[in-house]
Design a protein around this nucleic acid. Structure first.
Lengths: 202, 202
DNA sequence: TGCGAAATAGCAATGCCTGCATAAAAGCAG
DNA sequence: CTGCTTTTATGCAGGCATTGCTATTTCGCA
């Protein structure tokens, strides 16, 4: 299972990853070519595509696992658990699943986060990936909450994700620390759960 | 102001627009090349880029006007108007501004709507465009609602847009009529305003 | 009719991405 | 160690979007 071969693959992937993030940060996303990334990682340009499906893809790893996490939370609805509580749990589960991802570890994570919210192309991609999962999450919700109609379920997930996306963006623009981002995320979720109208009183 | 020249420009733009939408619908977005669109419109490929900045751009016209509409609604906050009421008005204003757009008229609109929610690349682009306006709308909100902090304002707008985006998507998947879409949008906004927690009781 | 501005078109180049075919490398017998 | 098999790493050619620069055509107007 883990011979010389496996380790080399991981090393190459890692080299590409780090080269990409470093170059993107130094010169900007658009100004960095795949040829340059490959050169910095010591492989041929063609090889890049053996590890990542596209240039954007380098920064969006394991998106499927995030979706899995969300679906698992929905499937694990506790008896009588209200929708709001479940979505709160979903947020915390997402945070944790990100933290536990070993390929998204410390060295790369802050730079990646900054890039994702800084470069328009990447921001767009991130949004798209997130929303891509929306129909399936909404469908899962419908199954677990039989009283929920599809439009409401969809809107709930959309609202949830929208609040989340923006919280990250705002947090990035301001401080940018992981704690700030987490706090902003919680606040965003809270707002989505309690309703925008609830903001009038505060 | 409106000589032979102007009219010809409008006609060419229109020809490109219709050719693009038609071809996209027939063969799919990815399978249609700009060369084909240009040929169908009777112009050189290079000319396409004199009218639209990109292939995706053909389907997303006047995005700036949508942003204008949103900012205008915010700026026109009525004395003491609650945030929820203002966002409701914002939704209705968006619908109206879309309806009044003469370049997005009947012939093209239904096909465009279908494409926007069907083709992944276009769905992504639509989301990105929508969210692109978010920071400015949120900032405007902050100015009009001094008691609102940036994170809350951002989350509110994000939640609003997320709900909206999804409502459109769901409506498209189901029926697909304009009335359905409008109703789904209203429902989505309602949910975002009242909070996801409010769905538990229904 | 002829001039200056605007619209069209042509050409070349860059860069992402893909399919296909081949070389290089790593496991694995024997 | 050597030849065979399965992966990986490349190379190459091509398709397509997009852009910069230049040439050509077309208008509008004096």
């Amino acid at each position: 299972m883990e011979g010389h071969r496996e380790r080399k693959k991981v090393r190459t992937r890692r080299a590409l990853l780090e080269a990409a993030v470093r170059l993107f940060s130094e010169r900007g996303y658009e100004q960095t070519t795949i040829a340059e990334i490959a050169a910095a990682a010591g492989v041929a340009p063609r090889t890049f595509f053996a590890y990542f499906t596209s240039k954007e893809d380098v920064l969006f790893l394991h998106a499927e696992e995030r979706e899995r996490t969300m679906l698992d939370v929905v499937a694990g609805r506790r008896p009588g658990e209200p929708l709001g509580a479940l979505l709160s749990r979903m947020f915390e589960a997402l945070v944790q699943s990100l933290a536990e991802d070993d390929e998204l570890d410390f060295a790369l994570s802050p730079l990646r986060a900054r890039l994702m919210f800084t470069e328009p192309a990447l921001r767009a991609r991130g949004l798209a990936l997130m929303m891509e999962a929306q129909p399936r999450v909404a469908e899962a919700l419908c199954e677990v909450y039989p009283e929920l109609d599809p439009v409401s379920a969809g809107a709930a997930v959309g609202s949830f994700m929208g609040a989340l996306a923006v919280a990250g963006l705002v947090a990035q623009q301001q401080g940018g620390s992981n704690e700030d981002t987490l706090a902003a995320g919680r606040r965003g979720i809270e707002i989505a759960l309690n309703g925008l109208s609830s903001l009038d009183g505060s």
